[in-house]
Structure formats: C-alpha cells, structure tokens
Simulated assay, not measured.
Amino acid sequence: MHIGDVEVVKVLEWQGEYGPARTIVPGSPPELWADNADWLAPDHWNPETGGIRGAVQTWVLRSEGRVILVDTGVGNDRDRPQIPLFDHLATGFLGRLADAGVRPEDVDVVVNTHIHYDHVGWNTELRDGDWVPAFPRATYLIPRADQVYFDPRNAHRRPPPRTEHDQLRREGSLLVYADSIDPVLGKAVLWEGSHRIDRHLTLEPAPGHTPGSSVVRLASGGDRAVFVGDLLHSPVQVLEPQHNSCFCEDPVQAAATRRGVLERAADTGELVFPAHFGGSGAAEIHRDGSRLAIRRWA
C-alpha cells in the first residue's frame, strides 16, 4: 500500500499459533476472547485450542529513494532455548524479501523498534561460522536505552530473575545480543530522545515493553501511520489496553504507553501497524464512546 509518498510492503517470515492466548496476554479475561470470537478467528485466535495466532514480519518502507526495514524477525540458525518454536528456525525470508524487490545490498536503513529476539534476528546471518551484518550497506537504528539494558556487561543492573521462565529469558537475551546486536554495532546509530529518519519518518520512544521500546511515525501529505512494534500482540489489547503481554519488562509503563499511542492514533487518524498481527496486519482505530475499537482492517 501507499501512505502518502511512502510505499509499505509486508514481508512475512513466519505465521501460526504460538501459545495460549491467556498466557501471552495474561490479564485478559476469557470473555474478552469469547465475545469477539467472530472476528478474532481465524487470523488472531483459535477458539478450539485457545491459542493466539500471529505473525513475525518485516515492514519494508520505500521513502525518499531509500529502502528501510522496520524490524527483522527471528532469523535462521539461532540458538533460542527460551522459545523452542523458533530455535534454529529455517525460513526463506531473504527469498521473500527478494520477491518484494529487495536484495540485501539494497537496504539503506534497518530499524529495530526494540531488542527482542523476534525483532533483530535478520540483522545478521551466519557465514563461515561467524555472524555478520545481513544488510552490508545499511545503517542500523537501535534504541540506546535497549542497547545499554541488554548489554551483557550491564546484566548486574537488571532485576534478578523471579522464575525459571525469567531465567530462560535472561539467558536467551545474552544469545540474542551476541548473534544479532554485537555484530552490527559498528554500523549502528544508538539513538535517544527521538530520531528523524527522513522527511516522512521519525522514531519516538514508547517505553515499557522494553526500556527502549519505540514506534516509527509516518506522516506524508495528509496521511498518517504508526508502526508500534510490540505495543500490541493481539487486537484485544486495542479493546482493553490495560492488558500487557507476558513479555513486557515494565507492565505499568507498558500499559500507559499503549493507551497513549492508541488514543493518539484514534484522534489523529494514524493507521496502526503492529509487528505480530496476522491477516492484513494493520488497522484503523477509533473511539467507541469511552472505549477504543477497530474501525476496519487496512
């Protein structure tokens, strides 16, 4: 699709069911899913299993003559013990990127909305036993707050793990940093505050999911969009923004950020592009009385 003068293409890496819905969005009541089953299924929820459905995808933006990737998925060949579903994944993602007219050497900018394994994986690829940048000409835009937070040298500053799951995530984040962040730091801009990519695109902080979690805002002509990364894992979080995913580092801040971003989208007509929605993947949000709702899918 085109948003003003910017072309937006979705390139899928993986799609399917990845966990129980009320485990992924733990505060959500069962009736929130059941009452909306007629439109959540089949792209976002499987009523028979109670499983959440979604996608891992990259948004390709062509803006002012440059190719910009927003998030880079899981990547192939990775040790991911914290999530067996994606351990040593092998997909044809680069082939799908080529089908969209993008070769690795065509990419000018890579945006990581935050540092989680499913947003930074194709930053690199494995060649002759070494992790090297997958996009040799690109500048990698990484939130400084996340780079500092996930840098293994700063592990002592992070809260101690409370559960076995927390420990697995902690160990997994070390692997993610080693294979997907450290090899591209020489090509990275560690931004803070905000960062203008070009005349149409700006990066802004949206903390809570991670300390450096961010959104990409697009404004071109009279058209508006916002790429929200992991502020949303399911459309039920549009209806009730107070419900976080189980992956949020700071739940209170994440919920406040989510509500603020969605209310701005509803009030200004921004088209919302989450990282993990199945189906069309983008939605128009509006106010329905005192609540928020999805007006239509884009």
Rank of each mutant, 00 (worst) to 15 (best):
G27A: 03
N154A: 11
L232V: 00
V25W: 09
D106N: 10
M1K: 10
S180W: 00
Q15D: 12
H200F: 08
P42F: 00
E48W: 11
Q15G: 12
V70N: 10
G172K: 03
P133F: 14
G19R: 12
R103Y: 14
N154V: 09
G101F: 02
L97Q: 06
A256V: 15
V25Y: 11
R127Q: 06
P143E: 06
L175D: 03
G75M: 01
T163C: 09
P183K: 02
T72Q: 04
S214F: 00
L89K: 06
D118C: 03
F227R: 01
L69P: 01
R53W: 13
D77I: 13
L61I: 06
G186A: 12
L231I: 03
G54I: 08
F93L: 05
T91L: 02
R199K: 13
R295H: 14
V148Q: 13
L69G: 02
D99M: 11
G208M: 12
T23L: 15
E249Y: 11
P159K: 02
N154S: 10
L292N: 05
I197Q: 08
L85W: 07
P133M: 03
L174N: 10
L94C: 04
R224P: 05
N112A: 15
G129I: 09
I285V: 07
E64Q: 13
R287G: 00
R53N: 14
A266E: 04
G51A: 14
P143M: 04
G212A: 04
S173V: 10
Q237S: 01
L89W: 07
V60M: 08
G193R: 05
L168N: 07
V8N: 04
T139L: 06
V67T: 03
R153D: 15
D71K: 05
Q147C: 15
Q253L: 14
H114K: 15
G4S: 05
D5G: 13
M1L: 11
W122K: 03
P159V: 06
G54C: 04
C248I: 02
A134D: 02
L231Q: 01
G260Q: 08
R196K: 10
N123S: 08
P20I: 03
G27V: 01
E284V: 15
R295G: 12
T49P: 01
P42I: 15
P42K: 14
G172C: 04
L94K: 08
Y149D: 05
G27Y: 15
L239W: 02
G75N: 02
H276W: 07
L203Q: 13
V120A: 09
I24N: 04
R264K: 13
A145G: 06
L40R: 00
I24R: 15
N244Y: 09
L126D: 00
D198W: 05
K187P: 04
P42A: 05
W191N: 00
H88C: 09
E105N: 03
R196Q: 10
P30R: 15
G65I: 10
A254N: 08
R291P: 08
T124E: 02
W122P: 13
H44K: 03
D250T: 04
P152Y: 00
E284G: 12
G269A: 06
V215G: 02
A275K: 04
